[in-house]
Amino acid sequence: NKEHILAQKEVLTPIEYEHYVKHLFDIGEITKELYIELSS
């Protein structure tokens, strides 16, 4: 869920976080809207 993803932002580097969010989007775990929101 969104809270879990945002928690990852605390422990990952910005680049790792971007890759993580992109991966979730690629596998269909999150919607495009959520992907855009989380990567901003």
Score class of each variant (00 low, 15 high):
I27S: 15
H23M: 12
K2D: 05
A7M: 09
L34Y: 07
E16S: 04
I30L: 07
E18T: 06
S39E: 08
H19V: 14
L38I: 12
H23Q: 12
H4W: 05
H23E: 15
K32Q: 11
K2L: 14
D26I: 11
S40D: 11
K2P: 11
H23F: 10
S40N: 12
I15G: 14
V21E: 01
G28N: 07
N1Q: 14
E3L: 09
I15W: 11
H19K: 14
P14N: 11
L24K: 03
L38R: 00
L6P: 02
Y35I: 02
N1Y: 14
K2T: 14
Y17D: 01
K2N: 07
L6F: 05
L24D: 00
E33G: 08
E33S: 09
I30E: 00
I30T: 01
E37L: 06
S39T: 14
I5E: 01
F25W: 13
K32Y: 15
L6E: 08
L6D: 03
I15R: 10
E16Y: 03
Q8T: 10
E18V: 08
E10Y: 04
H19T: 11
L34S: 07
S40Q: 13
I15Q: 12
Y35W: 12
K22S: 09
L6W: 04
E16G: 06
Q8V: 12
E33W: 04
H4M: 15
V11P: 02
T31V: 05
I5S: 02
I27L: 13
G28P: 00
Y20L: 14
H4P: 05
S40A: 14
I5L: 07
L34W: 07
E16M: 05
Y17I: 01
I36W: 08
G28Y: 03
D26A: 10
S40M: 14
K22I: 05
Y20R: 02
Y35G: 00
Y17A: 01
Q8R: 09
Y20S: 01
V11H: 11
E16A: 09
H19R: 13
E29N: 10
P14H: 09
L6R: 08
L34Q: 13
L6A: 08
E16V: 03
S39R: 10
Y35V: 03
S39M: 13
I36L: 15
L24P: 00
E18Y: 12
D26C: 13
D26N: 08
Y17N: 01
K9A: 07
A7E: 09
K9S: 06
F25I: 02
S40T: 14
L38C: 03
V21H: 00
V11L: 09
H4Q: 13
L6N: 05
K32D: 10
D26Q: 08
E10K: 11
L34T: 13
I27G: 09
S40V: 06
I36G: 12
K9M: 10
Y17V: 01
V11D: 06
K2H: 06
L12K: 07
F25R: 04
K2G: 05
I36V: 15
G28Q: 05
K9W: 03
I36A: 12
F25E: 02
E3F: 08
E37N: 03
F25N: 02
S39L: 15
H19L: 15
E16F: 03
L38Y: 04
A7T: 08
K32M: 15
E33H: 06
E33V: 06
P14A: 14
Q8H: 07
N1A: 08
L38G: 00
A7Y: 03
L34K: 05
L24N: 01
E18Q: 06
L24V: 03
E29W: 15
E16Q: 15
Y35K: 02
L6V: 08
K22L: 07
D26M: 10
Q8I: 10
L34C: 10
K32V: 11
Y20N: 02
I30M: 05
K32F: 13
L38D: 00
V11G: 09
E18K: 07
H23A: 13
E3K: 09
L12T: 02
Y20Q: 02
A7L: 08
K32I: 12
K22P: 00
E33A: 12
L6T: 07
H19Y: 15
D26K: 07
I15E: 14
E29Y: 15
Q8S: 08
V11Y: 11
P14E: 10
A7K: 10
V21K: 01
E29P: 00
T13D: 14
T13L: 10
K32T: 12
Y35E: 02
H23V: 04
E18R: 06
I36T: 09
E10P: 07
F25S: 02
E3G: 08
K9F: 05
Y20M: 12
I36M: 15
E10Q: 11
K2C: 07
H19F: 10
I15H: 14
V21R: 00
Y17G: 01
A7R: 13
I15T: 15
E33Y: 03
H23Y: 14
K22M: 07
V11M: 14
E10V: 11
Y20T: 03
L34N: 05
A7I: 09
E3T: 09
T31P: 07
I15S: 14
L12M: 15
E16I: 03
E18L: 11
P14G: 10
E18A: 08
I36D: 13
E33F: 04
H4F: 07
D26T: 09
E10W: 02
T31M: 05
Y17S: 01
K22T: 09
N1K: 14
E3P: 06
G28F: 03
K32S: 11
K32G: 09
E10H: 08
N1C: 09
L34R: 04
I15L: 13
E10I: 12
S40K: 11
E37K: 04
E16K: 03
L24C: 02
E18F: 06
V11A: 15
T31E: 09
I30Q: 00
Y35A: 04
T31L: 05
E29R: 06
Y20A: 03
S39D: 06
K9G: 05
K22Y: 07
N1E: 08
D26S: 10
V21W: 02
L12Q: 06
H4E: 04
Y17F: 14
L38V: 09
T13Q: 07
E10F: 03
H4K: 15
E10A: 12
D26L: 12
E33N: 09
V11I: 13
Y35N: 01
H19S: 13
L12P: 01
K2I: 10
L12H: 03
F25T: 01
H23D: 09
L38F: 05
H19M: 10
Y20P: 00
D26V: 09
T31S: 08
L38T: 02
E29M: 14
V11R: 14
L34D: 14
A7Q: 11
I27V: 15
G28I: 01
H23I: 04
Y20G: 01
L12D: 01
I36R: 07
K22R: 15
L12R: 05
L38Q: 01
E33Q: 10
K32A: 11
Q8A: 11
I27D: 11
L38W: 01
Y35L: 09
E3Q: 12
T31Y: 03
S39N: 13
E37Q: 10
Y20W: 13
E33D: 11
H4S: 14
H4N: 15
H19A: 14
H19Q: 14
E33K: 07
K2Y: 12
K9P: 01
L6Y: 04
T13G: 11
D26H: 09
I5M: 06
I30S: 00
L38K: 00
S39I: 06
P14K: 11
K32H: 14
I15K: 08
E10S: 14
F25C: 04
V21G: 00
I30R: 00
T13M: 06
E29G: 09
T31K: 05
K32N: 13
P14W: 08
D26W: 09
S40F: 12
E33M: 06
N1G: 07
A7S: 10
E10G: 13
Y35M: 09
L6M: 13
H23P: 00
T13Y: 03
K32W: 13
H4T: 13
I5W: 06
I5T: 03
P14Q: 11
L24F: 03
A7D: 06
H19W: 13
F25K: 05
S39W: 05
L12I: 05
Q8L: 11
I36N: 11
I36F: 09
A7G: 11
L24R: 01
K22D: 09
G28C: 05
K2E: 06
